[in-house]
Design a protein around this nucleic acid. Structure first.
Length: 294
DNA sequence: TATGGGCGGTTGAAAACGTA
DNA sequence: TACGTTTTCAACCGCCCATA
């Protein structure tokens, strides 16, 4: 095994304005580390090293997480020592390795697919679905995950990021802002949801129409997803959705009730919701679990 | 038990950039 | 230059928790 300094660094990821994210020495260190990980042959080890790499990507970054929406620290000339960075990486590896000792008893399988249309071979296959999908609150996971997505080569261009955000349920970052302007509803939701959207749309704000469309698209997408999940469930199969409500211009979007109505229309029985917790922000915002059975 | 610094979460606004 | 696209991060509220 060579010393990290001796590896030829990979190309820097094509993330916009990379030196805002990492100062040159930090970026150089990460690129050499990425190059070193590429030489490891055992695939399971590569996966654990990649998890550790993701953590060090953030530790060495100028990203500030004192806010839900990633921004940057002030005055980031920053001291950098390759020895300290190496120690930090080793320490992360030890933590990840320790965590990996706890193995689930069940075997698992990861399938990459659009959750609005699960593959036909999965129909009737599952007895339980537990998930925490995006809330209708305009948080873009693509935007927040850019450091990982670019360093791990899942993204190469900003339009890939933007397209992925538009494809994802609940995305409003990048070009979604524009596309929502001309997006057309299919009027498949209960009428009161359109009434709520109309109220949002009539709010005194230049983004009002956009936000109304955002909310409608979120629920129309979720309705497609729920129909798809219904098909994937075995008889008597159950679902549990952790979701949050939201507010737009003081107009509450009762996500929990909308989920109940969508599920009932699709054919789920014993559909109900409970408050899981109060969210530590706006008084009217809660997290719920909505459950039902096929 | 009181206090207050630290910081997370929501709701977007607006600046910056790209291109026809 | 206009307009669509992409990036940056502000204002506000209030919970958490260490410390006195």
């Amino acid at each position: 095994m060579q010393h990290i300094e001796e590896y030829v660094p990979t190309d820097f990821p094509p993330i916009y304005n990379i030196y805002r994210w990492w100062n040159p020495p930090q970026a150089e260190f990460l690129a050499k580390l990425k190059s070193a990980i590429k030489t490891v042959e055992d695939d399971a080890v590569v996966q654990l090293l990649t998890v550790s790499f993701c953590r060090i990507v953030i530790e060495l970054s100028n990203a500030a997480f004192n806010h839900v929406s990633t921004s940057f620290k002030d005055g980031n000339e920053g001291f950098f020592s390759i020895d300290i960075a190496k120690e930090a990486f080793i320490s992360v590896c030890e933590m990840v390795a320790k965590g990996a000792l706890l193995q689930p008893r069940a075997t698992s399988k990861v399938l990459l697919h659009d959750s609005r249309s699960i593959p036909a071979e999965c129909y009737g296959a599952y007895d339980t679905v537990i998930t925490s999908p995006p809330y209708p609150n305009r948080i873009s996971y693509i935007r927040e995950l850019r450091p990982y997505m670019y360093w791990l080569d899942y993204l190469e261009t900003s339009d890939q990021a933007s397209n992925l955000d538009w494809q994802a349920i609940g995305g409003t970052w990048g070009r979604a802002t524009s596309l929502l302007g001309t997006w057309k509803s299919d009027h498949s939701l209960p009428q009161y949801v359109y009434d709520i959207a109309e109220k949002i749309s009539n709010s005194d704000n230049k983004s009002a129409r956009l936000m109304a469309n955002y909310v409608l698209k979120y629920f129309e997408d979720m309705q497609k997803h729920l129909s798809s999940v219904y098909a994937g469930l075995a008889a008597k199969g159950r679902v549990f959705y952790i979701i949050g409500n939201s507010n737009f211009y003081n107009i509450t979007v009762p996500a929990e009730k909308i989920y109940v109505d969508m599920m009932t229309t699709i054919g789920f029985v014993d559909v109900e919701y409970h408050i899981v917790r109060k969210r530590n922000c706006n008084k009217q915002l809660y997290e719920f679990v909505v459950s039902g059975q096929k």
